[in-house]
Amino acid sequence: MEIYFLGTGAGMPSKQRNVTSIALNLLDERGTYWLFDCGEGTQHQILHSPVKLGRSEKLFITHLHGDHLYGIPGLLTSRSYLGGETPLTVYGPVGVKRFIDTALEVSGAHLSYTLNVVEIEREGLLFEDETFLVETARLEHRIECFGYRIIEKDQPGKLQLDKLAELGVPAGPIYGKLKQGHTVTLEDGRVLQGADFVGAPIPGRKVVILGDTRYCKGAVKLAQDADVLVHEATFAMDKQELAYAFDHATSVDAANTAEEAGADVLIMTHISSRYQGEEVSLLLQEAQAIHANSHVAKDFWSLDIPRKL
Results as ranks from 00 to 15, higher is better:
87 P>G: 09
87 P>Q: 06
87 P>A: 05
88 L>D: 11
88 L>M: 12
89 T>S: 02
90 V>S: 10
91 Y>E: 06
91 Y>Q: 06
92 G>V: 01
92 G>I: 12
93 P>L: 09
94 V>I: 05
94 V>S: 08
94 V>M: 06
94 V>T: 12
95 G>C: 04
95 G>V: 00
95 G>L: 01
95 G>M: 00
96 V>H: 04
97 K>N: 08
98 R>W: 06
98 R>E: 14
98 R>D: 15
99 F>W: 11
100 I>V: 04
100 I>P: 09
100 I>L: 12
100 I>F: 07
101 D>H: 12
102 T>H: 10
102 T>A: 10
102 T>K: 06
102 T>W: 02
103 A>K: 14
104 L>D: 01
105 E>R: 06
105 E>W: 04
105 E>K: 15
106 V>L: 12
106 V>W: 01
106 V>M: 08
107 S>R: 12
107 S>P: 07
107 S>H: 11
108 G>W: 07
108 G>A: 14
109 A>D: 13
109 A>I: 05
110 H>L: 08
110 H>S: 08
110 H>C: 12
111 L>K: 03
112 S>R: 11
112 S>L: 12
112 S>H: 14
113 Y>F: 11
114 T>F: 05
116 N>K: 12
116 N>L: 02
116 N>S: 07
116 N>R: 13
117 V>C: 03
118 V>G: 02
119 E>R: 06
120 I>R: 02
120 I>F: 14
120 I>N: 14
121 E>M: 06
122 R>D: 15
122 R>P: 11
123 E>A: 15
123 E>Q: 15
125 L>C: 07
126 L>H: 04
126 L>N: 08
128 E>F: 03
129 D>Q: 05
129 D>W: 03
130 E>N: 09
131 T>M: 03
131 T>I: 07
132 F>W: 14
133 L>C: 12
133 L>P: 01
134 V>M: 14
135 E>T: 14
135 E>V: 08
135 E>M: 10
136 T>G: 05
136 T>C: 13
136 T>Y: 01
137 A>W: 00
137 A>C: 06
137 A>S: 15
137 A>M: 11
138 R>A: 07
140 E>V: 14
140 E>K: 11
140 E>M: 11
141 H>T: 05
